[in-house]
Amino acid sequence: MSRTDVLLRVDDLTVSYGNIRALKGISFDVRDGEIVTLIGANGAGKSSALRAVSGLIPFSGRILYGDRDLSRIPPDGIVRLGIAQVPEGRGIFGNLTVFENLRLATWQRKNKAEVAKDFERVFGLFPRLNERKDQMGGTLSGGEQQMLAVGRALMSRGQMMLLDEPSMGLAPVLVRDIFHTLAEINQAGTTILLVEQNAYMALHIASRGCVLETGSIVLSGTGRELLGNPRIKEAYLGG
């Protein structure tokens, strides 16, 4: 695959919860090796888009990963295809140790030697997790939980990582660290689809971005274009 190949193509994606239409036919794509970000305010439909890609909720429209149609594939099948998600609020299992949280994400993987290598990689990226290996997930600080959530997504060894507001609730310095790590992970070959309210940080590391407002994409462009766009400045970057 060359670097400009489309890895994920979302076409006319519509998601409804009962009568509420959370996504009203959005289309975007993510090329292999890119970081693409979806930004938008509360309730814009960002999480719904990621949930649809991960197979957690029914949708209409089309989602293609490579040339695979993702409709009707159950969530565990989507992970097997190579898409890992860091969910909103991190979703750490508080009753499992840090090590177990990571290990659970290797459910699909058979090659023990490679799994061991990935443990090393994750502990290399986040030495703090190694120190707290046997501690319960629920006892970690917010920042550590976020590291664990990202580490877990790495353990499933996907080609693509979806992240739902990784900066949520973190101090600015931690946010910078996390985004720095994401850029590193991306450099090492993982394609990233990043959902954020922290538009400034997200657009900084993203090659491209889409702005979501009440279920529709109202703007899209390269990260730099969007950062310079007056409308974005006013609405998302605090003037």
């Binding site: 992970v79 998600q85 979703g91 299992f93």
Partner: peptide, 19 residues
Amino acid sequence: MAMRAISWDKTIVPLMGVP
């Protein structure tokens, strides 16, 4: 491990690739 994880939060477990 998967059983314990499900008892904590069933909605997150599928994202780990666990059926």
